[in-house]
């Protein structure tokens, strides 16, 4: 059985935003720190580091999860997606990001990457998500600026935009 000693670094291999990455990490390293400090993917923000605020939310195998509650050793072989993956090109915003801009869904922006990853996962599996579903998914995030109303408005606008896009592409 693989035994990883506490005092050395171990190889962790996984996919980050579609690219294969391999890093050396101690067992105690959190996914949030692995992303930011070892891979330079600083789009993922770190707030409370005990699973309450939701700022560090990323997608693991398609599901939104708290990166601060996942050990690097448990990510071996997984498919990780962060906010860096959302923009189609450097000059373009995704429909969800554009809706946040349009509806003032952020102010200071600290909580935004996590919220985007939760909503992106929701809208991927449930493109016609209701306001209630959106609010339930957002309950896993703290935002101290907006009061949430504009975030919900942005999510609903994104649902509408995605619906339109699908109509034209069908």
């Amino acid at each position: 059985m693989p035994q990883l000693a506490a005092d050395t670094k171990h190889r962790v291999a996984f996919h980050l935003n579609g690219r294969k990455v391999e890093v050396l990490a101690e067992n105690r390293m959190l996914l949030s720190d692995l992303l930011r400090h070892e891979l330079g993917a600083t789009g993922t923000h770190v707030g409370c580091e005990h699973g309450v605020c939701g700022a560090c939310t990323v997608q693991v195998d398609g599901a939104p999860v708290r990166a601060c509650l996942i050990l690097a050793a448990q990510i071996d072989g997984a498919d990780v997606r962060t906010v860096e993956a959302l923009t189609p090109t450097a000059q373009q915003l995704s429909p969800l990001q554009a809706a946040f801009r349009e509806k003032h869904g952020l102010q200071c922006g600290f909580c935004t990457p996590g919220i985007l990853m939760t909503l992106d996962a929701l809208l991927t599996t449930r493109p016609d998500a209701s306001e209630q579903e959106i609010r339930e998914h957002l309950s896993g995030h703290l935002c101290r600026c907006t009061g949430y109303a504009t975030i919900v408005a942005a999510a609903l606008a994104a649902v509408e935009e995605i619906r339109k896009e699908q109509k034209y592409n069908a």
Binding site: L4, A6, H10, N27, R28, D33
Partner: peptide, 8 residues
């Protein structure tokens, strides 16, 4: 940050 531990 977590303290150091072995992982199996």
């Amino acid at each position: 940050k977590p303290p150091a531990f072995d992982f199996v």
